[in-house]
């Protein structure tokens, strides 16, 4: 089912998984995933609840290691290096591959400090004010918060908080940003802003986004991976991966077609 179209594509590969399996203790949550993420493109991961989308996303920057008992088999190649090689430090992985979470989780600090902290812990020696402004501008939040940088990040609205979290991720200059349903808790207007922002960020960053919302995937992404529980193993796997317009117009797999047209189940 895996489409090996990436070799013929121009964009450079950033992340590539090879026979990736992720386990929580003995339970296999994600099985045998082979997919790739292309530079300066938006890759969406869609699929029904509980099929392992978030687990797969977190495996791209080793965040799933924070869950006790989880481990991965197979390879995630990033920049020519297997992220799961024992020599690789997860701290450096997460520095280069940032993350935005489903529910906005700003630090209970000031807006300024939310962005500056990440840069500071990585030894940033440039002008902090400039960095904070640039990150907030990139996250389309500067105009709304420039007069209250010393206020708590928690005082912002839900949509603003989520953009603050995106700005925070930008502050350490990651190459890839992983987004786990970043707009699922937001109203349509705030969602639209986030989507516009994601489109804007694509120029400088590579983005992987997990979403429940198929319209969102169709609107924002360049590539789409369709995940589903495989019948044989009851573990989530990528059943189809292709350019987004192909997934939504001419899917190869019957299950993908049922899902994206809303006829699933």
């Amino acid at each position: 089912m895996q489409q090996n179209i990436e070799t013929t594509e121009k964009p450079e590969l950033v992340i590539e998984t090879r026979n990736l399996n992720i386990f929580y203790n003995d339970f296999r949550a994600v099985s045998n995933v082979n997919m790739s993420v292309k530079r300066h493109r938006i890759t969406a991961i869609i699929g029904p609840s509980g099929c392992g989308k978030t687990t797969l996303l977190r495996s791209f920057n080793r965040m799933n290691e924070l869950v006790p008992g989880s481990h991965a088999e197979g390879e995630v190649i990033f920049d020519g290096q297997n992220l799961y090689d024992p020599m690789v430090d997860p701290v450096e992985v997460r520095y280069r591959i940032g993350m935005v979470f489903q529910i906005a989780n700003p630090f209970p600090k000031s807006i300024y400090e939310n962005i500056a902290w990440g840069a500071r812990i990585h030894g940033y020696r440039g002008r902090m004010d400039g960095l904070v402004e640039s990150c907030l501008r990139q996250a389309a939040l500067w105009d709304e918060v420039k007069d209250k940088l010393n206020q708590s990040g928690l005082a912002l609205s839900g949509g603003q908080q989520q953009r603050l979290c995106i700005a925070r991720a930008l502050a350490v200059q990651p190459e890839v940003i992983l987004m786990d349903e970043p707009a699922s808790a937001l109203d349509p207007i705030a969602t639209l802003k986030i989507e516009e922002l994601i489109q804007e960020l694509k120029k400088n960053y590579t983005i992987v986004i997990v979403t429940h919302n198929m319209q969102q995937a169709a609107r924002v992404s360049d590539y789409t991976a369709m995940m589903m529980l495989s019948d044989a193993q009851r573990a989530g796997t990528v059943i189809e991966y292709n350019e987004t317009n192909i997934i939504f117009t001419r899917p190869q797999d019957k299950r993908t077609e049922d899902y994206v047209t809303g006829r699933f189940g």
Binding site: L66, R94, R96, G98, M99, F101, N105, R168
Partner: peptide
């Protein structure tokens, strides 16, 4: 736990 994740997510030790 979301706070810890946020911190780890930007590469904090």
């Amino acid at each position: 736990v979301s706070l810890r994740r946020a911190s780890y997510g930007i590469g904090a030790t």
